[in-house]
Design a protein around this nucleic acid. Structure first.
Length: 563
RNA sequence: UGGGGCGUCGCCAAGCGGUAAGGCACAGGGUUUUGAUCCCUGCAUACCCAGGUUCGAAUCCUGGCGCCCCAGCCA
């Protein structure tokens, strides 16, 4: 069994139907080399569904030693802009892919596209139509009834040519004229009922061509030609374009392009408790439900990055979910497992108390400070050690103490013992409360003979983390949860916004971190022991550290207790 | 009720006529100064249903059923 066939190896390449098609094309000598492309429209930020496509397209190019172009599909100036172009480039790059010199824009082909349109007109395969939008819809027919031919369908070639030239020259206002392919108004495939190839758009500034054009080609016309011009062999897209394939093939067959790429469709990624359409994502940003495209709750690449996800984990996730044509809804647990797995092995540990409760060691000298040497990783000794101060007054997490413990609780209880992680075993001798009865402080004693060794004659079940009060760094910690409260937001015709999880963000403003964390730079990742994985946010400063929780640790205890 | 797709474990997904991979999740056990990690073990007599072909069918054929997509001068 070769490594590529063994699923246990990390470089295992999951077979999928697209790779099989490519293998077959190669076996039949249909291509000298493989060329794919990732063709985003710059009208929004990339999300994890795009990552699936990026990993697929760039991954195939890598494995077959071919190429993958980054091409912006910018044929609708109304919705597209440079900010998105730059953000998309950053995201693809961050994910670990390089397009080198192969950066393209569909708008770079506008002149050639225009030429091919003239060719179609000359061949009698396209015509200038004067039906307005509503009329075109009426003439198109319905799903079950054929359409009617446009009265302009048989306009003479010379007249079409003249009109088309005048359309380009700006002689007609928006919406008056379109260039349409002459295919078949009775086709059961609506996409073939004389689809619009060009529309008129005055007064919009295209992010690259400015006001040079008032005529813009449609996706169905632009995409196949762009692919052909770039020598793309396999044009991979999502399932909703399946019906467009015959039009794709028609365009490429009726115009003098250098080659005929093959379009193959796969199903898009759906993730539980998330929305994945640019329209909805844009809405969340524009309507202020999130703080921006990089809000850590967003499934956008920028959001996941700020949340603390690594590009490696995202790529692994995309490989694990596979590529098929079946509708799917991937569980959040799948994504979370991938990031935990990656972070567990590469990230240093640290101690941070999120909900502080003061703990005073009555048996420990007031003026004493011990510098304990603790490992940065429990299994990877190459990650070294760090010193942590230990003093009489500490903070522990409120959740690690219960005056009246529930069954199975193995942390600190009144009169009980617990191990302070990396330090001593302590016993709680007194619980201090305020007038309302709330616990405000724990008085404890420590067993000096338990540093780096277990006590004699008794077994300590629990281990809790802590931070020395005097040296602790006050910090803000943002706890994120799923953005939506239901697995399929908007299902059943509901407004997806009504499904937002009101508790998707908890901001803890007074957390205490071990002193070393003050030096963390934005983007630095840690495991706060027993809490989860965290990343220093871009809002973080040495004077005021801010950490985002990427994901919690797997927690079989709170699951058992229903917490 | 037109056309295009899809239906294999709770989720994702291999399989392509020779007798159901793997991952996630879950359950149990072991190690453990993170209730983490790690390590074992278990987890579809069964592949939407019904017929048929075959020595043999998840894989082929026929007929059903269910779900998704399409009537933008969006992509």
């Amino acid at each position: 069994m070769s490594e590529k066939e063994d699923p246990k190896k990390t470089n295992f390449i999951r077979p999928n139907f697209i790779r099989r098609i490519i293998d077959e094309d190669l076996a039949h000598g249909r291509h000298a080399r493989i060329a794919t492309r990732f063709p985003p429209e710059p009208n929004g930020y990339l999300h994890i569904g795009h990552a699936k496509s990026i990993v697929l397209n760039f991954g195939i190019a890598e494995d077959y030693r071919g190429t993958c172009n980054l091409r912006f599909d910018d044929t609708n100036p109304h919705k597209e802009n440079r900010e998105y172009v730059e953000a998309i480039k950053e995201d693809v790059h961050w994910l670990g892919y390089a397009w080198g010199e192969r950066l393209y824009f569909a708008s770079d082909y506008f002149e050639q596209l225009y030429g091919f349109a003239v060719e179609l007109i000359e061949k009698g395969r396209a015509y200038v139509c004067a039906l307005d939008a509503e009329q075109i819809r009426e003439y198109r027919g319905t799903l079950t009834e054929p359409g009617q031919e446009s009265p302009y369908r048989d306009r003479p070639v010379a007249e079409n040519l003249d009109l088309f030239a005048h359309m380009r020259a700006g002689a007609f206002p928006d919406g008056t004229l379109t260039l349409r392919a002459k295919i078949d108004m009775a086709s059961p495939n609506l996409n073939l009922r004389d689809p619009v190839l060009y529309r008129i758009r005055h007064g919009v500034i295209h992010h690259r061509t400015g006001d040079e054009w008032c005529l813009y080609p449609t996706y169905d016309y632009t995409h196949p030609i762009s692919d052909a011009l770039e020598g793309i062999t396999h044009s991979l897209c999502t399932l909703e374009f399946e019906d467009h394939r015959s039009l794709y093939d028609w365009v490429v067959a009726n115009v003098s392009v250098p080659c005929r790429p093959r379009q193959i469709e796969f199903s898009r990624l759906n993730l539980e408790y998330a929305v994945m359409s640019k329209r909805r994502l844009t809405q969340l940003v524009d309507e202020g439900f999130v703080a921006g495209w990089d809000d850590p709750r967003m499934p956008s690449i920028a959001g996941l990055r700020r949340r603390g996800y690594t590009p490696e984990a995202i790529r692994t996730f995309c490989e694990r979910i596979g590529v098929t044509k079946a509708d799917n809804l991937v569980e959040m647990a799948m994504l979370e497992n991938t990031i935990r797995e990656d972070l567990d092995r590469k990230v240093p540990r640290a101690m941070a108390v999120l909900r502080p409760l003061r703990l005073v060691l009555e048996s420990y000298p007031e003026d004493r400070t011990e510098l304990l040497t603790v490992p940065n990783h429990p299994k990877d000794t190459t990650k070294g050690t760090r010193p942590i101060p230990f003093t009489r007054e500490l903070y522990i997490d409120r959740d690690d103490f219960m005056e009246e413990p529930v069954r199975g609780f193995k942390r600190l209880v009144a009169g009980g013992e617990v191990r302070l992680r990396n330090a001593y075993v302590v016993r709680c001798v007194r619980v201090v409360k305020d007038r309302t009865g709330a616990v405000v402080e724990l008085r404890c004693t420590h067993d000096p003979d338990t540093l780096g060794k277990n006590p004699e004659g008794r077994k300590i079940k629990g281990v809790i983390h802590w931070v020395s009060a005097r040296q602790a760094i006050a910090a803000e910690v943002r706890l994120y949860d799923r953005l939506f409260a239901v697995p399929e937001p908007g299902a059943g015709g509901r407004d997806f916004r009504a499904d937002l999880n009101p508790a998707s963000l908890h901001t803890l403003t007074l957390c205490f971190l071990e002193p070393g964390l003050a030096a963390a730079a934005p983007g630095d990742r840690f495991q706060f022991e027993r809490e989860g994985y965290f990343v220093a946010d871009k809002d973080s400063h040495p004077a005021r550290p801010v950490f985002n929780r990427t994901v919690t640790l797997r927690d079989t205890w709170s699951r058992k207790t229903g917490g």
